[in-house]
C-alpha cells in the first residue's frame, strides 16, 4: 500500500506512524521466537545475553545445553562408540520423549487424516444431510476447552467398559486405556480431526465436482475415480491437514498429563516438567530444535499451498 499523491501532511505523518506501529507488532510476533535461539548457545546458565555473547566472543557460546539434553538420563556417561549410542537411544530422557512424540504423533495423524479425509469428502457433497450440525460436532474438539476434554477422557479411558455396564478385565484391575499408547493416540487423533476437516473441506470447496462425473462417464469405477482423479487434486490439502494434525499431537500436553503413564512421556510433557520445576537453559535447546522443526513444517505447508493453488488455477496468491 503506497501513500496516495493527494495525501496531506497529516496523512503523511499518520502513514509513517502506521508503518512504525506495524513494524513493532511484527517484532512482537517474531522476536520471542528468535531470541531463544542464540540464548540456547549461552555458555553461562543465565537467561539473558552475557557481555561475552554481545561482543561475539566465541567463549560466550557453547553447546553445553544441547549436550546436557542428550546426556540426561543416560546410564554410563563414560562409554564411547557403539555403547554410548545404544545407551543414548535406550536411556536418554529426551531421546525417549522424542521417540514417544513421534510414535504417538504418527499414529494419531494417520487415524485423523484417514477418517477426516473420508468425512470431508462426504461433507462436501451437496446432498449431505444435517451438514451444519455434523460439521459443528466434528469441529468441536478444537473449541471445547482442552482441560474439559482431557478430564472427560481421563475418566472414560480409565474404565471404558463401564459405559455399557460391563466389566472388562478383572474387578480390581479393569481393562483401561490410560497409561497406554492407544489411549494417548486416540485422544490426540480426536484433537487433530478438526484441523484435517477444515483444511480438506477448504481444498474440496474449490474442487470441480463435474470431474467425478466426467471420470464416471469415461468408464472409471468409483475406486479409480478416487485414486486417479480426486486424490491427486486434494492431496496438498490432505497433506497440510495431516501436518496440522501432527503438530497438534506433537504440541499437546494436557491430555498427556492426564492420560499418559510414565512410559508415554512426550517432548511437551518433559518441557512442562522443565518449566514448572527449576527452568534450565536446556529447555531453550529443546525449544530451538522445535523452532527449527516448525520452520521446516511451515515451508512445506507454503510449498503445498502454492501447488494446490496452481492446480486449481488460482492466480496470484
Amino acid at each position: 500500500m503506497a501513500l496516495p499523491t493527494y495525501a496531506d501532511p497529516l496523512e503523511r505523518a499518520w502513514y509513517y506512524t502506521y508503518i512504525v506501529i506495524c513494524t513493532l507488532i511484527f517484532i512482537f510476533l517474531i522476536a520471542p521466537i528468535l531470541v531463544i535461539i542464540p540464548l540456547s548457545f549461552n555458555a553461562e546458565p543465565y537467561f539473558t545475553f552475557t557481555s561475552k555473547m554481545l561482543s561475539f566472543d566465541p567463549e560466550g557460546y557453547s553447546l553445553r545445553w544441547y549436550d546436557e539434553l542428550v546426556v540426561k538420563g543416560m546410564q554410563s556417561t563414560g562409554a564411547t562408540g557403539a555403547a554410548w549410542w545404544s545407551d543414548m537411544w535406550q536411556n536418554s530422557v529426551w531421546v525417549k520423549a522424542a521417540k514417544n512424540s513421534v510414535i504417538i504423533g504418527f499414529w494419531a495423524t494417520i487415524l485423523s487424516t484417514v477418517l477426516g479425509t473420508l468425512a470431508a469428502l462426504g461433507l462436501s457433497r451437496p446432498e449431505m444431510p444435517w451438514r451444519r450440525l455434523i460439521m459443528a460436532v466434528l469441529i468441536s474438539p478444537m473449541i471445547v476447552p482442552i482441560i474439559i476434554v482431557a478430564t472427560g477422557m481421563f475418566f472414560f479411558y480409565s474404565n471404558p467398559c463401564s459405559v455399557i455396564g460391563v466389566t472388562c478385565g478383572t474387578e480390581e484391575q479393569p481393562w483401561r486405556l490410560t497409561s497406554t499408547y492407544t489411549g494417548v493416540i486416540l485422544a490426540h487423533a480426536a484433537l487433530g480431526i478438526p484441523f484435517v476437516i477444515i483444511t480438506v473441506t477448504a481444498t474440496l470447496s474449490g474442487f470441480d465436482q463435474s470431474l467425478i462425473r466426467a471420470a464416471a462417464s469415461l468408464g472409471a469405477n468409483p475406486r479409480t475415480t478416487f485414486f486417479k482423479v480426486i486424490m491427486p487434486l486434494i492431496l496438498p490439502g490432505v497433506i497440510s491437514g495431516a501436518l496440522f494434525a501432527f503438530v497438534t499431537s506433537f504440541d499437546e500436553v494436557v491430555a498427556v498429563l492426564l492420560i499418559a503413564g510414565p512410559e508415554q512421556q512426550t517432548i511437551p510433557r518433559q518441557m512442562w516438567n522443565g518449566i514448572r520445576e527449576a527452568i534450565s537453559p536446556a529447555i531453550l535447546a529443546v525449544a530451538t530444535i522445535l523452532v527449527v522443526i516448525s520452520i521446516a513444517l511451515l515451508t512445506t505447508i507454503e510449498v503445498l499451498r502454492r501447488r494446490s493453488d496452481a492446480m486449481r488455477g488460482v492466480t496470484g496468491r
Binding site: 517474531i30 520471542p32 521466537i33 531463544i36 500436553v253 522445535l290 516448525s294 520452520i295 513444517l297
Partner: peptide
C-alpha cells in the same frame, strides 16, 4: 511462524 511454533516453546 508463531502459529506453527509449539505453544510451550
Amino acid at each position: 511462524l508463531p502459529f506453527w511454533t509449539s505453544l510451550l516453546v
